[in-house]
Nucleic acid binder design. Structure first.
Lengths: 367, 367
DNA sequence: TGTCTTGCCGAAACCGGTTTCGCACTTCAC
DNA sequence: GTGAAGTGCGAAACCGGTTTCGGCAAGACA
């Protein structure tokens, strides 16, 4: 390469400042600079400060893949999309990914994305991503009850953080929204409105959240002093169509509920459809609550009473938890939950019925 | 490190086979192996074959970040999400990203994701991603008419591929769906059904597709021999609410259209709402077409006549185009378009009106 | 004053690749 | 038979970091 070309490179590609540049500027060797930046004990506090300051002013940041060749760590977080996931996941994806990458970038990390459609390719994705040093650890959206990703990563000692709380918590770190509290609050809210027969349509049974939300519903019923009718509790509804079918079953019940608690907004929208086919007015003849805070719920008529979830913030927290774990913090110490935000819409109203003095005159009970 | 620990590492972390292993197995030096794998001319065909075969059987693949330290290329594609993007983008994101990462992985590449909310952070994302060697090139979703990303990347000689065709095509490669053909087909379809007054609601003006689709609409009108009424052409509608407002304006027209061509499904759903408020029956009193093929359109009553787009395939193609460009193919040679798939729903029907012998008896014209 | 720590840093090896350079060996022309 | 050109590979430098090792100087202790 000619001197001219060299010069061109330096100016045009605005050559990065390397560790050598920093070392030269301080009259130190690069080994000293390296150890100073990594906080080795055998570097004096004063030189460490000098190095740090100089790195700051020279805008020096070590090249992650140059470090990776020796350390094996690339400063990048992995995330594998599963296309088989039901649609409820989709609307959040943009916010969630934005949150993850934002959280990662505040610590100098980046996000590496892969996708898988089959079960085998799922595990293979994790394997190659880790082996090729493309990811130092993984974020696992949608914790499942029996999670093959967890099994694989745990076995291979790869750091990971779950979005959700699995039943087998050993050596896991996680972030989650307390969906169970939301379900409990939903029941409370409905009970306060005078409802006594409350149905429940749970989400996907393979996911960890389903068990929690069922429990939350039961706790709410108990706290409100209401009897639980097992025939009013349905499981495993993840789409709007599922919600429609399940709602029809509940509403066709000999003694139908006056309110339905749904574990997922999409399902609640299915309840809207079911109510429409029966000419029941949502919020008057039938109350419904959801969970997730999707946009379609807010746009529905009437707006859905639900619990909104900040998926962007969740992604950001997951990223920082994972980074801490990669840096050595024990997984069991990295567990966090936050509450969902109750969002009252028009889909919940006073319980209808003859013995309800609150009910509107024109709102007769049905049958 | 003790010999024991060394052994442990080797067995447990299933040490990768390195270039040295391959060289040793063949009694060659690693420099020869490297040049053989990279197709240097000064390596004989026979040794190249031997090396390739051995690499295959030993399952050797060079560590991308080890190469990157010398070459600057990391075998990873960059993609920066813009949260400000309107919602129409969201439902496709999962498929699109899955397509990109799938396309990338077939060539041994991975996908690096970043996000930005402000304009400044957008360009900054590109800059740092490239400077830190986290991305060899970029995929730019949603080409804009005046695209700051393009300006920046072009100036800095960073490879990129657009999803969409910008007006200033110089030195750009792209993949796109021919939305203009779809608009033309939509008009043709409506004209065949007897419609003569056809409105048009275009999408976001900042995006490159808007100009193309408008042109397609006009071509369709011309081909059908229909007069274009400028007051029936509206612009810049990207949300359902936009579509509602625009549709109301069209339907409140003194001489309203009997059909509306929408450049976006979300907007078409807004037309549904507008029609409902005027008690117009979609597909009977008013025909509507969309574009995108979102799920909500298929679920609407009646199902939306639209043009569906395979975003997963698009993502995959974009990835391979970008990889080719990174490998040296000239950008101008990497341009591809495909057609959208016409999907007839119930939202388009015979034109209503007194002089239409096809119209159902009970379907009177309005006014 | 001599020796033994201790603190602090430089020298050099190393990570897994790429790339330049030069040398030995053939091939060909004369 | 000799020189020149061309072929095919090894040796070694290099990329930008990390990590081990060793040594010097200052202080501690006897």
């Amino acid at each position: 390469m000619s001197a001219n070309q060299q010069k061109l490179l330096t100016s045009e590609r605005r050559a990065r400042t390397t560790i050598n540049d920093v070392a030269a500027a301080l009259n130190l060797t690069k080994s000293t600079v390296s150890r100073a930046m990594n906080g080795y004990a055998d570097i004096s506090k004063s030189t460490q400060n000098r190095v740090m300051k100089m790195a700051e002013t020279m805008n020096y940041q070590p090249l992650s893949h140059a470090q990776a060749i020796k350390t094996g760590l690339n400063r990048s977080l992995g995330l594998v999309l599963q296309l088989s996931d039901h649609d409820a996941h989709r609307p959040f994806l943009a916010e969630f990914l934005a949150g993850v990458s934002a959280g990662a970038s505040t610590e100098g990390y980046t996000l590496t994305l892969a996708s898988a459609d089959t079960h085998d390719s799922l595990i293979a994705s994790f394997r190659t991503l880790k082996q090729d040093g493309k990811a130092d650890g993984f974020i696992l959206p949608r914790a499942m009850v029996s999670d093959p990703r967890v099994a694989f990563l745990r076995k291979n000692d790869v750091p990971f953080v779950l979005y959700g709380r699995p039943p087998d918590a050993s050596n896991c770190s996680w972030f989650d929204i307390r969906g169970e509290d939301a379900m409990r609050t939903a029941v409370q809210h409905l009970a306060d409105l005078g409802h006594r027969r409350i149905g429940f349509i749970n989400g996907g049974n393979i996911y960890a959240y389903a068990g929690l939300r069922r429990q939350g519903f039961l706790l709410g019923m108990q706290a409100a002093g209401l009897r639980v009718d097992p025939s009013l509790m349905l499981e495993d509804a993840v789409t709007q169509e599922d919600g429609f079918q399940a709602s029809r079953r509940l509403l066709d019940h000999a003694n139908p509920p006056t309110a339905i608690v749904c574990a997922i907004d999409q399902v609640a929208l299915g309840t809207y459809r079911a109510a429409r086919t029966l000419e029941l007015r949502i919020g008057i003849d039938l109350s419904v609550t959801g969970y997730d805070g999707i946009q379609a719920g807010a746009q529905a008529q009437p707006p859905l009473t639900t619990f909104s979830v900040d998926n962007k913030a969740a992604g950001a927290r997951l990223a920082t938890l994972l980074i801490q774990q990669i840096r050595g913090v024990a997984p069991a110490e990295l567990r966090e939950t936050v509450a969902a935000t109750f969002q009252r819409g028009g889909s919940t109203g006073p319980a209808p019925g003859k013995n309800d003095h609150l009910s509107n005159v024109e709102t007769g009970g049905r049958q």
